[in-house]
Design a binder for these strands. Structure first.
Length: 208
DNA sequence: CTTTGGATCGTCT
DNA sequence: GACGATCCAAAGG
């Protein structure tokens, strides 16, 4: 984290989630706390849209749980999954539309020791934040952080641009863990990063 | 290496 | 009452 690191403007998020998602690769998700700062570079994301996306929590209109998704862009949408995990999204789209980008994996870059300590189950360094629930545990993100404004950092959680460009040719593929709309290639990841939640498709790799 | 099943509970039908 | 935008350990090849 350097002084030159800049928060992304609201306008960055007020666009189609399909446009925002790949551009989020390379950005930094930061959590500041009295005990120290924890941060990771975003290496994997998935886009979820609104009424035209059956896999999206916003598909059936606003509910108490998804109200953040229907709110202003640039906020954090955190939901509880499988009775034990938290997952974090960045709310996108112009006002009036509901969409979000799920952060699926991070490369730990600051407060690595604290992140690792927060994940006793991680066997290897790459396992600390290579999954949507894992990164929330590593950064200490829970339901109380739902609604945090990532642009102004009102709750010490932000998405920063440290000058690192998004990958020129990111990996693309279907979203993970869904049972509908499985044909949409709305998952993007840094194909060269060992910190993604799943390795690139084996079929696409030519063996020497 | 891949596959399978258990954990665990809020949310929406 | 069923089902997850998951993770992990254990069992099978």
């Amino acid at each position: 984290m350097n002084a030159a690191d800049a928060a992304l403007p609201r306008s960055f998020f007020e666009r189609d989630a399909l446009a925002v998602a790949p551009e989020l690769l390379g950005k930094v998700l930061v959590r500041r706390a009295p005990e120290g700062t924890r941060a990771g570079r975003i290496v994997e994301v998935e886009a979820y849209r609104g009424e035209d996306d059956p896999a999206s929590h916003a598909f059936r209109g606003p509910t108490p749980r998804t109200r953040t998704m229907f709110g202003p862009a640039g906020h954090l949408y955190v939901y509880f999954s499988y009775g034990m995990h938290w997952c974090a999204n960045v709310v996108c789209a112009p006002p009036g539309q509901a969409a979000a980008v799920l952060i699926r994996a991070l490369e730990p870059i600051e407060g690595v020791e604290a992140m690792t300590a927060a994940r006793p189950g991680a066997r290897r360094p790459v396992d600390v934040a290579n999954g949507p629930a894992k990164l929330c545990e590593a950064l200490g993100i829970t339901g109380v952080d739902d609604g945090a404004d990532l642009v102004v950092g009102d709750r010490a959680i932000q998405v920063l641009d440290d000058g690192t460009p998004a990958p020129d040719a990111p990996g693309v593929g279907p979203r993970v863990g869904i049972s509908v709309a499985v044909d949409h290639p709305w998952r993007w990841f840094d194909a060269g990063s060992p910190f993604v939640s799943r390795a690139p498709a084996r079929s696409a790799v030519t063996r020497a």
